[in-house]
Write a protein that binds this DNA or RNA. Structure first.
Lengths: 356, 356
DNA sequence: TAGCTAACCGAAAGCGGTTTCGTAGAGCAA
DNA sequence: TTGCTCTACGAAACCGCTTTCGGTTAGCTA
């Protein structure tokens, strides 16, 4: 049924028409008679014609493609979102038959040259950037290049570009407030390096909530570690070794929180009873944690779709600053948050003192 | 530093040369003097020239792009692999500066027309197909279209195309053998609908292992449910309601196994003590399950890389049937497998009998 | 029947590259 | 100086499609 691709030329020859005529017929130009238009279209899908997109896009001067900058991840546990985001982007693009290009960079410096080449080569009409760091050079580069883009997440100064984000600061205020309402006053923060803006945002929320509740800021209760379950475990061990350990903790992500649970259980404590833990993300896997993880769940489902729609609008000429969407996370109570029970943790500390 | 994209034409004008000369200089043709070649290259990256890929690819007759058919997923928990696979594909492609296109289809019928259009439009030089079903129509279509492709997974008759797969049958033989060695004789299978070839493969392994060990095939011990954690939970409940429940079970995936653990715990049993459970995939999250999930871990890391390399070779003219790679999964013991302890489960059954 | 308009299609140019072919000029030998 | 070979570049054609511009024919009016 098929050998080599059928071009407009052989379709035209088959019909006894010229190439431009066939082209206009397929594109519903008004100066083609309805009769030949139908004849052309019928022949087109009988022969299985599909326009060469490289040629077409060169001609119309649009790539009809957007690019997604794949985040490079160290830990293999950290990317449950990628597939969902791509799915959403695909949905947004499919309405116009645009394509989705995944852009991969090996190193961080490589990423910038990669972006520049991609933008300048006309392969994409716009880009989706994920997980910005503070003063993200990619954002400035895109602005210099005057290439449309949207950011999944945002930076401190985010007035002049388009973004979709979940309010991490607000989420951590909510989480800490919840723990305080349960009676906790020594609430710790388990975080990752602050180069990522979202890490800073969530820490800000933690600190603001402590102040709002009239609690003092104890630097010992802020533990920064690698952004992974192992990092969460290490940070939690540091906290539990403190002379005056926390009775509750908020974790930068569910993944880190899983590590925290492991550390807590390893010492014979029961998460949610002896020490409360709240994660962030709302991963489904949290349901199956030990015990099921309480978390600030973010509405991930629509991110890709919204980002795709935004980017298309901007490519159409919309002002990027008109497309900024801030979602809120909500508390999803499972089993790792509970009222203050100081007894066991403090006993443990005094035992330790005795031994030393 | 930039306004509108700089083309070969304006680069040539800037240099006082013609367009073809500049093109050949940049592409290291021998008939360009070293002097002008250097001059051209310097000017090129001073002006930030990057060739228009639509034009270039039209001209050279190659899209320099491969496509990845995004699997459509029902449950949002099932996609930890996508990002890793894309990463690997990206690595394989970056060596040649090829691009990676993600192809999204809304429905199943839509997928076939999508594939056909994509192949015929010259957007991709080849395709990566994931998770084939039995007699997958996509595979036949690709063969009819004579478009290079590789399959992540494989079907029953997989002699004449390229694929990368992990031996699910072998894995389940290993898992069942392990459980039998621990003393179990009533081993159940928790699976998903058999339209997916991998679901059938793993069931085959389960059945073969039972025969190898001289155990009878009890159809009641085979429970097929939706491919999700909820499905695993439902299936497990069916098994536990049996008059003669299993003392061990193998699950199609870690995700389903997590559901199984939930069902087991809900009845007051301890997974790994009262009932053994072995999953499949080796997800990192399994470490944090309750208790940590024993699983058949598959070497996922290289799949994308290998598939990308295969596809490029085939596009270069290699015989697809020369590229077939079967990996093995290995048993990763955590805490849900243990020696036979019939007492509690059987007591539970007799209690139930008494009540009725 | 001349003249005008509208409908319909062909001719030509262009998108931005690549590649083949041709040729002016440099260099060299006789 | 003639004649030859290379060297190094320009001219032209092409990839497959879109779009502008002209021109032929039919159909209508006067």
């Amino acid at each position: 049924m098929s050998g080599k691709p059928v071009s407009l030329k052989i379709l035209a020859a088959h019909l006894g028409l010229t190439v431009p005529t066939v082209s206009r017929a397929l594109n519903n130009y008004a100066d083609i008679s309805p009769a030949t238009r139908e004849r052309v279209k019928r022949a087109a899908d009988e022969l299985g014609y599909s326009p060469n997109q490289n040629a077409r896009r060169l001609s119309i001067g649009s790539s009809e493609t957007i690019g997604y900058l794949m985040p490079r991840f160290s830990s293999s546990i950290a990317q449950p979102f990628v597939a969902q985001l791509l799915q959403g982007l695909g949905e947004a693009l499919s309405k116009r038959n645009w394509d989705l290009l995944v852009i991969h960079a090996d190193s961080s410096k490589d990423e910038l040259t990669q972006i520049e080449r991609t933008a300048r080569s006309g392969r994409v009409g716009g880009l989706v950037i994920s997980r910005p760091i503070k003063n993200d050079p990619r954002i400035r580069l895109m602005q210099d290049l005057k290439c449309p883009f949207v950011v999944h997440g945002r930076t401190a100064s985010c007035d002049d570009y388009a973004w979709y984000d979940v309010d991490g600061e607000d989420a951590f205020v909510t989480a800490v407030n919840h723990l305080v309402a349960l009676g906790h006053s020594r609430v710790a923060f388990v975080g990752a390096p602050l180069q990522y803006q979202f890490a800073q945002d969530r820490l800000n929320g933690y600190q603001r909530a402590l102040q709002d509740n009239g609690l003092s800021l104890d630097q010992d209760l802020i533990q920064i570690a690698e952004f992974s379950d192992d990092g969460g475990e290490i940070a939690t061990n540091m906290l539990l070794d403190l002379p005056n350990p926390p009775t509750a903790m908020v974790c930068l992500s569910d993944t880190m929180a899983l590590g925290a649970l492991a550390a807590i259980r390893a010492r014979g404590f029961v998460p949610g009873v002896d020490i409360s833990v709240i994660g962030y993300d709302g991963l489904k896997f949290g349901e199956h944690a030990n015990p099921p993880l309480t978390t600030m769940a973010q509405p991930q489902a629509h991110a890709g779709r919204r980002l795709g729609d935004m980017l298309l609008s901007i490519i159409d000429g919309d002002d990027p600053s008109k497309h900024q969407e801030l979602q809120r996370a909500h508390l999803l109570r499972r089993k790792t948050d509970g009222p203050l029970h100081v007894a066991k943790v403090l006993n443990h500390v005094s035992e330790r003192e005795k031994i030393q």
